[in-house]
Simulated assay, not measured.
Amino acid sequence: MNKIREAFQRFMYGRYGSDRLNQAMLIVFLVCAMLDIFVDNVYFSVLLTSWEFLLVILIYFRVFSRNISKRYAENQKYLALENKVRRFFGKTKYIQQQRKDFHIYTCPQCKQKIRIPKGKGKISVRCPKCGAEFVKNS
């Protein structure tokens, strides 16, 4: 068993290996495979099977690639996109949590978002960014 591991390590030396982009593609592959099991439509099944085939080829290509800088750049682009999506949903979740206790208004001049506590009646709001004042109900 130890010889097999050493042989595989020698084979993989100088190759890219796996990263987050490969993991994401593997998850997409597994989802396609599960959908393929439960779908009765022949055309949709053929489409899913072709996607599965392409994903497997692309995953193996990236794992065994010797062009490490190019695979690294691809992974960095994917991570930047993933980070944007995570920030968007995190921000949306935070705003929804804040809406329980606060009204969130946008400054008419600079578009800065401002939190105002609920239940204070009609109040004058001063924007901390640009200094504009406007009246809102809390």
Score class of each variant (00 low, 15 high):
V42T: 09
S45E: 08
R87I: 00
A80H: 07
Q112H: 12
R5L: 14
R71H: 04
I95D: 08
R71S: 04
L55K: 05
T92S: 09
I114D: 07
N2P: 02
V135Y: 06
A33L: 06
I37E: 15
D36P: 01
V125Y: 05
A7Q: 08
F61T: 10
S45W: 05
R62E: 02
V39K: 01
T49C: 07
G14R: 05
Y60S: 06
V56M: 12
H103S: 13
Y105T: 06
N137K: 13
T49Y: 11
R87T: 00
F102Q: 02
K120Y: 03
M34L: 14
L58F: 02
W51T: 03
Q109T: 10
L21D: 03
T92R: 13
L81A: 13
N75F: 01
L21Y: 05
Y94D: 10
L79F: 08
N41F: 07
K70I: 04
R20D: 15
Y105A: 05
Q98T: 01
F38E: 14
A7E: 09
R99W: 00
D36I: 03
N22Y: 06
G119T: 05
I59E: 02
Y16M: 04
L47T: 09
N22E: 08
R15C: 02
R71I: 00
Y78E: 05
M12A: 10
S45Q: 12
T92Q: 12
S69R: 09
K113F: 09
V42L: 08
Y72G: 01
C32M: 13
K136L: 00
I114A: 01
K70G: 04
F89W: 14
D19S: 03
E6A: 02
C130R: 02
I95L: 12
G121N: 07
L48A: 10
R115S: 12
N41K: 10
V46R: 15
G119S: 01
D36E: 12
S45M: 09
R20A: 15
M34Y: 14
A24Y: 14
S18G: 11
L30T: 08
L81W: 12
S45G: 07
M1H: 10
F89L: 11
S65E: 03
C130F: 03
R71A: 02
E74S: 06
I27T: 13
I95R: 11
D36R: 12
S50H: 09
S65V: 04
K136N: 05
F44M: 15
R20M: 15
